[in-house]
Design a protein around this nucleic acid. Structure first.
Lengths: 142, 142
DNA sequence: TTCTTTTGTTAGTGTTAACTAACATGAAAA
DNA sequence: TTTTCATGTTAGTTAACACTAACAAAAGAA
């Protein structure tokens, strides 16, 4: 059952959500500057992205203050992060793609793969693990 | 050894090249209208894409006439098409993603995966084939 | 408390790529 | 040969996003 509410969010906005989630996990407080550094964009780009995300009820932030994900935003961000993790793991551990490349490509592909496909990939990897007795590598750091 | 000549072509332009290659393989003559239908965009979008690709020496076309890939354009298009085929095959045959979805997602991912990673995926699939005696499914229709 | 620095926002620009409307061209019909 | 119609192009608009420059606010130092 798919929610039609989280309609049409772009890859770029997904990147912002994911970055905010990651930052909030390691440094409770997330500021514009942090996101700016994390995504390698200038501060005005962050401000305007936040504005957009606010209008979609995915983040909340009072003027000149900290950025926080709404519950809805957190859900979306977590889904993307899971995609990232599964993809990264597959690329790095199964295909042997170098860490940096795997990270960069996972970052792109995560926006182009449906939840359904992602779960199939996840199952596939799990199956391979069992089949050839490999350790379960994927770290689900929520 | 990477050619630095095919510098920075966007996903969208890659889509155009790929579409032109596909069309030229089934109907020698490729017109703006064909590309327009294939990519689900309006004709002016095609015209302006062609203009861009012409400036990059990837296609040639005389005003009001047929569209053709240059050798360079054909090379690029074939690389993308190979990515598409490998990805599609993996998604459909190994992950069990429905045909339509697999096609759609391959179409997106093909722009975000390096040649190196693609080859690793291709080797991986080949390895799985041998390992579990599966038929080689990928149709390389050049 | 005032000054300075860091941080955040606004305003305005550029780029990519889509669209519509209107016009131009060339091929097929009359 | 002229009219018609499918096809192609130009011009102008819009949307998403990034950027710089300039301004506003908050936080820390003096």
């Amino acid at each position: 059952m798919k929610k039609k509410t989280e309609n049409k969010i772009t890859s770029h906005m997904e990147d912002y959500l994911e970055a905010i989630l990651n930052l909030s996990q390691k440094t409770k407080d997330v500021r514009v500057t942090d996101v700016s550094r994390a995504l390698n964009v200038k501060k005005p780009s962050v401000t305007s992205a936040i504005k957009k995300l606010r209008s979609l009820d995915l983040v909340c932030q009072e003027r000149y203050s900290l950025i926080r994900l709404t519950e809805k935003g957190k859900d979306v961000a977590k889904k993307i992060k899971r995609k990232h993790n599964v993809l990264f793991n597959f690329l790095e551990s199964y295909l042997g793609v170098p860490r940096e490349t795997a990270a960069a490509e996972a970052c792109k592909i995560e926006h182009n793969i449906s939840t359904e496909t992602l779960e199939k990939l996840s199952d596939f990897v799990e199956f391979l693990d069992k089949y050839r007795g490999k350790k379960t590598t994927e770290k689900e750091q929520e």
